[in-house]
Amino acid sequence: MTPAPTPEAAASGAPTPPPSKKPAPTIDSKGLQRYKMLATWIIFIGVLVVCFVGVDADFMALFSDGARQNMGRILGEMMRPDWSYASHIWKPMVETVQIAIAGTIIGAVLAVPVALLCAVNIMPKKIVSIPARMVLNLVRTVPDLLFAAIFVAVFGIGAFAGMLALVFFSFGLVAKLTYEAIEAIDPGPLEAMTASGANKIQLIVFGVIPQALPYFFSYVLYTFEVNVRAAAVLGFVGAGGIGLHLDQQLNSLRYDRASTIIVITLVIVLLIDYASTYLRRKLL
């Protein structure tokens, strides 16, 4: 995910330091290790139990008659998707992908300047980078569905609210990943650009962008994958796309139609994931 370390060190033939030898384990340290291990397990299981109690976990419910009957009925209906319904959902399906594409692109473009402001190797002034990161973290704490709900309340029901939600979500994700990639680039070319009399923008154009661009594109594609999946459920809060129809069919207990939507969504998401993963592998 991050740029590989520069191979200069290896190329210069510098002698590698001898591997540090750990002191041979004594009986004491072995005993200590065992206690640490035990304590870790106890804490781990303790946390799990507390959480089970918190969510009223009832494992018997999984095997109760009611659950078995419901599951059997719903699965049975879903096994027979209503393909005649497919012709009705192409339009919202396309809209879902359009929401994802527009949201990703606008968010990614907005992320670029902010990523540059956040990266301390480009913006050593803390007075800029720290507030920029705070804004970024704030944006990232808000879940995409919450953004969608807010924008539906502000701009009304529809795909536009969904797109705006994904703009914010993509912005946060792309900016965060990109500024981390920028901080990991080789500082050598930046030094060379400074020495040749470049100003800050020229330094970014010739030293930073050529190094960070493949990572940026890779993150944008990854964000697009996540966004297609997110766009599929945005409709549950009224923010357009296929989710609205899925919600309607589930509420009217038309599991055969819901199944059609789920299968088609799955195919689209898989296709986009496959294409995107292929492209990302080509990029890096």
């Binding site: 200069e8 050598g188 060379a192 040749s196 009399g197 470049a198 050529p210 190094q211």
Partner: peptide, 27 residues
């Protein structure tokens, strides 16, 4: 007016040779 050469070359490795040389012209 001062060219500099470094121990670790400090080229942009992903860019072409020509692109790297052209970057010396930005000033």
């Amino acid at each position: 007016d001062i060219g500099m050469i470094f121990q670790s070359f400090n080229l942009v490795k992903r860019a072409t040779v020509l692109r790297n040389v052209l970057s010396g012209r930005v000033g």
